[in-house]
Design a protein around this nucleic acid. Structure first.
Lengths: 211, 211
DNA sequence: GAACTCAGTGAACAACTGTAACCACAACCG
DNA sequence: CGGTTGTGGTTACAGTTGTTCACTGAGTTC
């Protein structure tokens, strides 16, 4: 399908991947603003100066990681919003998908959770922008749901952002409780939270505040 | 009231405060795991080795900052949960209190938001533990509320944690939008979120899942 | 097959880091 | 008052950091 890269380009991509992977691994025990360029190249087994062939700075690498990490999250969101079934089924399915994603990409989840409020401005901005796009997508899906009939625009936006936040928060909790009873508790709590939000949704227009 | 400290102890406390304040200020543009001991002492105007008279390490200082930052949050929570009035009034009042707290202690809020998922294990743990205590407190207040009649224990815990999370999330949003129209939007969104949660609360037992 | 491109190397740089040992001197206590 | 305590200062060390520069040599192109 895509044009075959030359041996040279392929090798470069490989080194780039190695740098990203090594950084992601190192970031499990520290944050981006303390990650050293030399630290990353050392982990890959490459000269420090080779770093500059791929990224201008650690900050730059961080932004690349954001795209990668949230890129892997994107399909999951599409799956969740397109899942059919009644409320309870959808909720359980959504939490299972989140748990599965955390199992599959723990380092990505950790990175986003950590750097969302982290010390590197450019990375925070990149995460914020991507999450805003997610919220728009969720918002559009919500707008098509009959439950949202009569909802105001700002209310839909609020709900979409709330769902995105819940997703991230839940993912982060799964990260700290990957197995056993703790994981079960996170699962139940996440389900309850979504159930509460769903209940609020169902009765949103009851009081006559809508419009 | 308290026993008057000797001149020596007072001077030591003063230096300690200066170290904490300097660290807090430096942490506005980086995260704890990249904060250097020398950096802090330089900002205070004190010898690097003097640091050890007050903290064993930067990590140690971080834990002290957690106690301070969440200590300042504690009275606000007590105020919010003890506020009387109908739902809408309480919500507006709560969001105003949060906004006011962010104005009064922006560095504290930033620190907690950043280090809650940050790269220093001991600090994450300290924040988690303190927030768990907050949740217990909120949970006890919720239990006394007639709206919570018939609620299960785990449901109350879930709701309390949800409120604590909302408070922190809202505070963090205010931090990024301290003035003007953006702040108003954060305000409205936070109110809507609490309103949705309140609506969910009011109809929690409608479906017959309770017990 | 010759000319060119460019990912990765190696050495060197000034600046920085945490921490150890020892010292000065003001505050404290008997 | 005299001796002790302990905060903070000074100096020094061994490592680390980001970045520069000139370079090599394999992949590419004509």
């Amino acid at each position: 399908m895509s044009h075959t890269l030359g041996v040279r380009q392929a090798q470069k991509q490989k080194t780039r991947r190695a740098l990203l992977d090594a950084a992601l691994e190192l970031l499990e025990e520290q944050s981006l603003s303390s990650l050293g360029l030399r630290e990353v190249t050392r982990a890959v087994g490459v000269a420090p100066t080779a770093f500059y062939r791929h990224f201008r700075s650690i900050e730059d690498l961080g932004v690349a990681l954001v795209e990668e990490a949230l890129g892997s999250l994107h399909p999951m969101i599409r799956t969740i919003v397109s899942t059919t079934g009644d409320g309870e089924e959808r909720i359980a399915r959504a939490v299972e998908l989140i748990a599965g994603h955390v199992d599959a990409h723990p380092a990505h989840v950790r990175f986003i959770a950590r750097e969302r409020h982290g010390g590197v401005q450019a990375v925070r901005a990149a995460i914020r922008d991507q999450l805003a796009l997610f919220a728009v997508e969720v918002g559009e899906a919500l707008a098509e749901d009959p439950v949202s009939a009569g909802w105001g625009e700002e209310d839909l936006v609020m709900l979409a952002q709330l769902y995105v936040d819940q997703m991230l928060g839940t993912a982060s909790l799964f990260l700290e409780a990957p197995v056993g009873e703790a994981r079960e508790r996170v699962f139940r709590m996440a389900v309850r939270r979504l159930r509460l939000i769903g209940t609020g949704r169902a009765h949103w227009l009851d009081g006559g505040v809508g419009g």
